[in-house]
């Protein structure tokens, strides 16, 4: 089979997922708004948790976190659709098309990546306004981080959605993943606060893809210079690779009975 054919199939599948994405744009806006509202409540009410001594400027601190949030919500939406399609057997239509299974899975994952990338774009502009304009090399780092995070989230969401056809269970798993990734990370709170709350378990948070991405964003938008770029980038690559392989295997296994 020609590579050209494979790529064409994957691109068209991704294009389909992207075109559907715009139909849910208001739903996604609502999701982001609700999450940001939660953050503001955290920031304003739980002053002890977000100690001004640790973070003097919470808005600038949290802006890279919102970039992660935008990627999570938008890239994860692909899993929601994959789940609905499995339940309603629309998947049968997809697997009957003249596309290889590999191209189909790749297209779906890329669909999620593109959703994350595009949806985040507006928030990236906001970050430039609220923080600072990155240099060219830092732009490359930011875009690479976004790509890897979107790839991780898209793959994970597809994996989780195909593990069970029970909608309630899917929603619960999604919430659990959100909780683990965001609350056990330094997206909302600084490392000092994490160490205080989690004690010796705090290092777990450093291995969260959200922590890694947010560290790279904070470095990219010049919020901080004390970031181990290599560790965080390598970590994100590892997350993306493992998630991708896992999604590929699980989705393919569930596509054909």
């Amino acid at each position: 089979m020609e590579v050209k054919e494979w790529i064409r199939g994957a691109v068209l599948v991704a294009q389909r997922d992207l075109s559907r994405f715009w139909r849910n744009i208001y739903w996604l806006a609502g999701q982001v708004a609700m999450n940001i509202a939660d953050l503001v409540i955290f920031a304003v009410i739980f002053r002890g948790l977000v100690n001004p001594a640790f973070i003097p400027d919470y808005i600038r601190f949290i802006t890279p976190g919102i970039l992660c949030l935008a990627i999570f919500i938008s890239a994860f939406s692909i899993g929601r659709e994959v789940g609905i399609e499995l339940r309603r057997e629309v998947t049968q239509y997809l697997v009957s098309l003249p596309v290889t299974r590999g191209a189909l899975v790749a297209g779906r994952i890329m669909g999620g990546v593109l959703r994350g990338f595009l949806y985040q774009a507006g928030f990236v502009i906001l970050a430039v306004v609220l923080m600072s304009m990155p240099s060219v090399d830092k732009w490359i780092l930011i875009l690479t981080s976004s790509f890897l995070l979107a790839l991780t989230m898209s793959s994970l969401s597809i994996t989780l959605s195909t593990l069970t056809r029970d909608f309630n269970l899917q929603a619960a798993i999604r919430s659990l993943v959100y909780f683990i990734f965001f609350f056990v990370s330094n997206v909302f709170y600084p490392e000092k606060a994490l160490a205080m709350r989690l004690g010796s378990a705090a290092p777990i948070a450093y291995y969260s893809p959200m922590s890694m991405a947010v560290n790279l964003y904070r470095f990219g938008f010049n919020y901080t210079t004390s970031v181990d770029v290599l560790f965080n980038l390598a970590g994100l690559i590892a997350w993306a690779t493992l998630s991708l392989l896992f999604a590929y295997k699980v989705y393919i296994r569930n596509l054909t009975r």
């Binding site: 075109s19 559907r20 609905i84 309603r88 057997e89 629309v90 049968q92 239509y93 009957s96 596309v99």
Partner: peptide, 29 residues
């Protein structure tokens, strides 16, 4: 799959899909 086309017993589409978009994408694929 390149030789076979199928019209399913239960139409396979999401409820928000529009026939024109659905069929145009199908033609492309």
């Amino acid at each position: 799959r390149k030789l076979v086309g199928i019209a399913f017993q239960e139409p396979k589409a999401m409820w928000i899909d529009k026939p024109y978009d659905l069929l145009t994408w199908h033609a492309r694929i």
